[in-house]
Simulated scan of single mutants.
Amino acid sequence: MIIPLDAVDTETLHNIIEAFILREGTDYGEQEATMLEKIAMVKLQLQQGKAVLVYSELHQNVNILPAKQFNQAAATPEDY
């Protein structure tokens, strides 16, 4: 289930994004970005609809997924 960004408190969203970044260990190119820069990048992707904030009833957790990946997973609702 997609969680609308406006339904999440600003600080909570910040913490979710930070936890996502720490968990994923994403590569940001040749120059390493600061945590604040990474958070801003992920937040922008969420705002642009390139990524979505999702709640998994199966796993009872919140995650950030690329929108395309979520749309593909929606075909198998038992996963999300």
Rank of each mutant, 00 (worst) to 15 (best):
Y80M: 06
H59T: 13
P4Q: 08
G49K: 14
H59D: 12
T10V: 13
P77W: 09
R23Q: 10
N15A: 15
L53M: 01
D9Q: 12
I21E: 07
L58W: 11
M35Y: 10
E32T: 09
I39G: 02
E24M: 12
D9R: 09
I3V: 03
N63D: 12
L13C: 05
L5P: 09
K50R: 15
G49E: 13
Q45E: 15
V54E: 02
I39Q: 10
A19G: 05
Q60D: 15
N61V: 06
T12F: 04
Q69L: 08
D6T: 08
I39A: 05
A67L: 10
K68P: 00
K38H: 06
Q72W: 00
K43V: 00
V54M: 01
K38N: 08
M41R: 14
T26G: 00
K43R: 15
I2Q: 05
T26K: 15
A33L: 15
G29N: 06
P4W: 04
L58M: 13
E78L: 13
V42F: 07
E18H: 07
E18D: 10
A74P: 00
A75M: 09
M1D: 14
M41Y: 12
D9H: 14
A40M: 07
N71T: 06
G29T: 03
E24V: 14
A51E: 04
D6Q: 13
E32V: 08
L65N: 07
E18Y: 02
H59N: 14
